[in-house]
Design a protein around this nucleic acid. Sequence first.
DNA 1: TTAAATTGATTGAGCGCTCGGTCAGTTTAA
DNA 2: TTAAACTGACCGAGCGCTCAATCAATTTAA
Lengths: 225, 225
Amino acid sequence: MKNHKSQATKDVPSQVKNQDLIYRRRMQIIDAAVKLFIDKGFHKTTTREIAREAGISTGLLYEYVASKDDVLYLVCEAIHAEVEHRVAHALKKATGGRDVLAGMIREYFLVCDRMSDHILLVYQETRTLPPRWRKRVLENELKLTGVFVKALQELADTGDLPPLDKQEIELIAHNITVLGHMWTFRRWFLGRHFKIEDYIKVQTDFILGKSTGGYIRADSAKEES
Amino acid sequence: MKNHKSQATKDVPSQVKNQDLIYRRRMQIIDAAVKLFIDKGFHKTTTREIAREAGISTGLLYEYVASKDDVLYLVCEAIHAEVEHRVAHALKKATGGRDVLAGMIREYFLVCDRMSDHILLVYQETRTLPPRWRKRVLENELKLTGVFVKALQELADTGDLPPLDKQEIELIAHNITVLGHMWTFRRWFLGRHFKIEDYIKVQTDFILGKSTGGYIRADSAKEES
DNA sequence: TTAAATTGATTGAGCGCTCGGTCAGTTTAA
DNA sequence: TTAAACTGACCGAGCGCTCAATCAATTTAA
């Protein structure tokens, strides 16, 4: 996992002076922790294991981090940064075509599919974080939803979607976000019946409405009165 | 919280002979644990605290339970039993009227609203459980979704809904379940903008389609060709 | 009738161990 | 030479779980 710089870098204090070293070592630490946390969860992972997996000593770990909670926070931020980065990147593909929204959903769901384990991890361990940081992580969730809010707003404004009020837009954006997450935490079951492409198709139909019309009818909005 | 008997009673072994006592004591234990787990999470709650809150000694706790994990499992099962019970009860109100499905969604969402903390708890701590039991808890989730699958199937059969294939029904049922849960784990944000009744309204419109038509159009299914 | 024996529930001090965190000392590199 | 980076043995608080001892209730037996 690439470690995209995030807020966290500044918030979590380190004893080490060399900024570049902080960046590199934390990358090792995060990668190691992500692997272990996904595998055995935060609580069953020891700091020793994290250090070992990262290829450094226990003592050194604490030069780059003040507590085990810090590691979790770094992990959550890193995952969010990665998701955000991928979504932003993927959404470029989606724009331009006729069904912008469908394209966005598709790309977002694909990101969810590929980052299932990571998204699930954040969901399950956020609670553990100290309040101050939990808040940060939750705000990250909003930020992602905000991307969809903005997109929906624009589409509604340009008339590509029927008029929707603020509340509706807000909620649809949340729905899209969460239905993406649903694939991650019900995958153990959904995976038996759906390939990700099936899932995308049926959910897109659900959100946009099939050709027969739907809650949001991107294609029929303009010609209808 | 009422303790509705569940599978768990048989699966978790106890040293105590008296069945009635097992029932009563475990009820105390579960109530205490639920309170503490919601408050500070499973890992930060000690067995001593559970015992104290339940009004028994640490030693006695272990006469009714073999491990701290057992307590978590009992809690998860109890919560599920409660949700299931409430949903089953609430859904009776929903049947009979014209918009059966809307009624079901409404009642289910109300249950989610009132049991937010509990549902959230199960989501966040399921991972901690030993595999054998984690599986059980996940299957419980399916069971609930199954209620909606069945209802949707019947409505589709009687023509109250447009024809939907198995996959679509399955997914819509999952969506309903998860959008109920969404209210529980995004409440910290959604609660600022929506009262539960607003949420129900907008989500129902989203799922069923507004009066202008939607993905599932309960009212227009019969008169259309 | 009642004292003795038995059963099963209950207590809580404390055992054993884990694991987050520290620090005295060593290595590296400029 | 020396400051920064790094090591890993060590510390000790905390916690899950146990078990010897007690108590209450019931059964037995004289």
